[in-house]
Design a protein around this nucleic acid. Structure first.
Lengths: 230, 230
DNA sequence: CTCATGCAAGAGCAGTGCTCTCGAATGTGT
DNA sequence: ACACATTCGAGAGCACTGCTCTTGCATGAG
């Protein structure tokens, strides 16, 4: 019953956007609006359920797509697979993507359930970093970028101490032994991935880039370079 | 009169988020709701006015901050100034930032007015690219990233043809002669800037990074490296 | 002095989230 | 088999929303 309500709500979400109407979904189900409250305490409660489902849906897509990469040593290919999975899911479910990675619903506070579901997707990326670090494919000890001038010093400044400490704490939790420098570049790729998808999905690329897919792949390759993947 | 309405609406926006109520702003002004319709045809019309204002506000902040960089040859400093200006404005006006760079309001179609205001901010970044290209500080002819392995080939693949054509068209409009390769890396920095601000503002960094300002600067430095700024 | 225009108030419509009450149906224990 | 308890949905109702339409009051122009 609650899955049926969520299904109808998802359908409304796809057409009407984030301001879905409880009465409308009740009408679609041949019920009266007050009956919904037997299953969801409030509209925010329904939204929370949809948000958790969305986080898990994108995590499912990312996990299965990344696992399908046969050559586990092809770290770049695995990163690319993650990126394409996120983008593909976002393009197929724009409203749900906006729900979890867009501007937060005003007055709505995300409960703790959502963060654990959100972590699933990130873990897939971190595993690539771990594998690359173990095999020695990553070189966090030197700047990844070229010197702006051939004879100049590396432009890449050191990781700020406070950031390094934050990242070390994160690494201790999910990837013990992973150097903060590696994690720092991984988070940059991570942030850029969602920044790129959001930019495209929210219309910021309109009248600028039309070759969306090629452009996205290009960005992911740049991020792979930045992380230091072969 | 319309500026007073917008001021009150902005204040409501800051507290209640994107779903602002016409009746509430009318109440705050001691008017009845129908009186608002003398000045704005609809709630969407008011939102559009706020959006255009927001685009211009962030453009003002960026332009003035960037212009305050004394050393015009310090391209990295100018990029950093832009980034900090955007982030600072976003942190000071989170609701307005979400209005223009967050998920679009459902059922709302942005009119053409907004795009020209959005272009103002981008122009400041493009000017850095132009200056850097003129002075020879940018080297778009070679990969900016290090080889993953010291003796391997450059990992950076070529710019896809379709993307190159898109970017050439953009360059023809606002920066004639600027190589698409330079613009490609500039857009990456551009996208990452807003991706980083959105990630922080929308709570995606919670329980991960606490040293927000240091982390942001670190990201901007990485982007400066990627673009190839000294 | 008259007319026209600008402006705000009020009523009203359809819609919303949410609460409360009531009646019907479905088991469950004795 | 009967009485009881629990579950479920319907309905009314409250306060709120965006928006439309009409009415009336001003102020300024001719």
């Amino acid at each position: 019953m609650i899955v049926e309500i969520k299904d109808v709500a998802r359908r409304h979400l796809a057409t009407d956007g984030a301001n879905l109407s409880l009465r409308a979904v009740a009408r679609d189900m041949g019920m009266v609006s007050s009956a919904i409250y037997r299953y969801f305490a409030s509209r925010d409660d329904l939204l929370t359920a949809l948000i958790v489902d969305a986080y898990n849906a994108v995590a499912d897509a990312v996990e299965s797509t990344e696992a399908a990469v046969a050559d586990r040593d092809d770290l770049r290919g695995r990163l690319l697979a993650i990126g394409r999975a996120v983008r593909g899911w976002a393009l197929a479910n724009p409203a749900e993507y906006a729900l979890i990675y867009g501007s937060p619903v005003p007055g709505y506070q995300a409960p703790q359930d959502t963060t654990v579901a959100a972590l699933r997707t990130a873990t897939v990326l971190v595993q690539i970093l771990i594998d690359g670090h173990r095999s020695g494919a990553l070189r966090p000890d030197r700047p990844l970028t070229d010197r702006p001038h051939p004879d100049g010093p590396p432009a890449d400044g050191p990781l700020p101490d406070a950031v390094r400490d934050d990242l070390r704490a994160v690494a201790d939790g999910i990837a013990p032994g992973l150097p903060p420098q590696v994690l720092a570049r991984g988070t940059i790729a991570w942030i850029h991935l969602f920044g790129a998808v959001s930019f495209e999905l929210f219309g910021q690329l309109n009248n600028v880039i039309e070759a969306r897919e090629d452009y996205f792949d290009y960005q992911m390759h740049q991020m792979a370079d930045l992380v230091g993947l072969a």
